[in-house]
């Protein structure tokens, strides 16, 4: 195993982890605050990519596409939460089945509207190409993804830890009843967090469209990864989502490179074992 191979794999793993963090960070907040098992999260990711594609086909630039996807998907998330999910708190089975129903409906609508062919989101000039360091190639776009993830995590962390809104959100995670008691509008906070989660998932979908593409089935392909990140890191913990993303991203990359025959196994089995030792995840609280 050469040093180049090692660095290359680490870079790939970290950039995949960045994508996973965008997807799973919001899911983790939703989990932590509302205990909603959201099987639709992968659909937000896929639909985000599709919305961005549609906007870009009309000639809009990449940044506009990201914003458009974020807004549309956040609205879809709010609608779904308002109409169904908010009534299902504490009913895991009901949540799983309802959100799975939405996931299937979105999957089929995606197929009707955007067809079965894979698409790629065209990157702006500044983000294509690679930086060459010695023997190593670092695609600019992957560096960009890592940058986006760092920016998002920093923003989320600042908002959660340093602002009044963040304090209200943390209070809602810790004890919704007390939070309501001291006058926090738990309902509005929950809706906001759900929208935020859906928005981040859609951004992940747009960003992923630039290198893995947007295609039918991507929703259910990425969903287990997002869940694994959230549960290993601990529900509701941003730090956990970050560490979980890195672990999953690196394990996935090294697993595929070193043990192709066992690659998914080398990803999911250690995760299950961590959960066996710490059922609430690395940074989660029961």
């Amino acid at each position: 195993m050469s040093g180049e191979f090692f660095i290359g794999q680490i870079f790939n793993g970290v950039s995949y982890a960045a994508l996973l963090f965008l997807l799973a960070g919001g899911l983790s907040l939703i989990f932590g605050m509302m205990r909603i098992v959201n099987m639709t999260h992968g659909s937000y990711y896929l639909l985000g990519g599709y919305v961005a594609l549609t906007v870009m086909w009309r000639g809009a630039p990449f940044v506009v596409a990201i914003v458009a996807a974020a807004i549309v998907i956040a609205l879809i998330g709010i609608a779904e939460w308002n109409a169904f999910l908010k009534r299902l708190s504490g009913q895991e089975l009901g949540q799983v089945l309802t959100t799975m129903g939405f996931a299937l409906i979105f999957q089929d609508l995606g197929l009707v509207i955007w067809g079965g062919d894979p698409h790629t989101i065209r990157l702006p000039e500044t983000l294509s190409g690679s930086w060459v360091v010695g023997e190593l190639y670092f695609p600019v776009y992957r560096v960009f993804i890592v940058g986006v993830a760092i920016a998002v995590s920093l923003t989320l962390w600042l908002v959660l830890e340093k602002t009044r809104l963040g304090a209200m959100m943390r209070a809602t995670v810790d004890d919704p009843e007390m939070a309501r008691g001291v006058g926090i509008n738990v309902f509005r906070i929950s809706m906001g967090v759900f929208a935020l989660g859906a928005m981040l998932a859609s951004i992940a979908g747009v960003v992923a469209g630039g290198f893995v593409g947007v295609y039918p089935g991507a929703d259910f392909e990425i969903l287990p990864y997002a869940f694994v990140v959230v549960i290993v890191g601990g529900m509701g913990s941003l730090k956990g989502a970050l560490v979980g993303s890195l672990m999953v991203g690196l394990l996935d990359n090294f697993g595929k490179a070193l043990f192709p025959e066992l690659s998914y196994f080398t990803l999911f089995a250690p995760m299950a074992l961590i959960l066996a030792v710490r059922p609430t995840g690395l940074f989660g609280r029961a």
């Binding site: 098992v37 895991e92 287990p224 869940f227 694994v228 549960i231 999911f268 299950a272 959960l275 059922p279």
Partner: peptide
């Protein structure tokens, strides 16, 4: 929820 998630990973 935790049982759901562990069985998912398994």
């Amino acid at each position: 929820v935790y049982f759901l998630m562990i069985t998912l990973a398994l």
